[in-house]
Amino acid sequence: MNASPLSLTASAAALFSNADGEVLIVNPTYKKFWNLPGGAVDEGETPHEAVAREVREELGITPPIGGLLVHAWVSVRGRGAQVLYVFDGGVLSPEDQAAITMQEEELSEFRFCRPDSMEDGLVPPHLTDVWQAALAARSDQHPRVLTVRL
């Protein structure tokens, strides 16, 4: 049996919040849905290095990136699979929030919102479970390993 090669990508994101517990989300110019700050893991870098680089490039800030919250295998039929790492970005200080300077080629806007008030269609449907797992992992300090198949 000849299986076709798997199309696999790796991405890393950070879960940041403000002092009110609202989560930072960004609106990529090249995607339909809002997302957590982050992006592709480049050859030769670790997921932790990738998320720090992506946050610096996309938002212009360099807050410390904490530990891993979620390691997810996300497989969407017809689109291949993605290994996704979500790290704890912690609470952004008012100074970090004021210093955010978006990379306009990649992001059109950012905002903080309550995790329980994100309207349907705002975030990628195949990542909803990943986001919820990241929030739970941050809350109880127990990283999650997740498989999502759609």
Rank of each mutant, 00 (worst) to 15 (best):
R56S: 15
Q103P: 02
V86R: 00
A134W: 00
L69I: 11
V148M: 13
G121A: 07
A81S: 08
G121N: 13
I100D: 11
E43L: 11
L15Y: 10
V130Y: 00
L8Y: 07
Q97Y: 02
D96A: 15
L69W: 01
E22A: 05
P63C: 12
L24S: 02
D42Y: 09
H71T: 06
F87M: 01
G38M: 02
V41H: 05
W131Q: 01
L107K: 01
V55D: 00
A12K: 10
A3I: 07
P63I: 01
A72H: 03
V91F: 07
R144A: 11
D129Q: 15
V86S: 02
T46F: 07
F16Q: 14
T101V: 02
A98P: 08
E54K: 12
V145L: 03
D88V: 10
R79M: 14
H71G: 08
D116M: 00
G66F: 04
V123A: 08
L68T: 11
Q141Y: 08
G78A: 10
G78D: 04
D96K: 13
D42K: 04
L6V: 15
A50Q: 00
A13M: 10
V145P: 02
E58F: 00
N27L: 09
E104Y: 09
D20Y: 12
R149Y: 08
A50I: 05
P143G: 08
N2S: 14
A72Q: 07
R149S: 14
A12V: 07
G38V: 04
R149T: 09
D96P: 07
V148K: 12
T46R: 00
M1L: 13
E95V: 15
G121S: 14
K32D: 12
G39F: 09
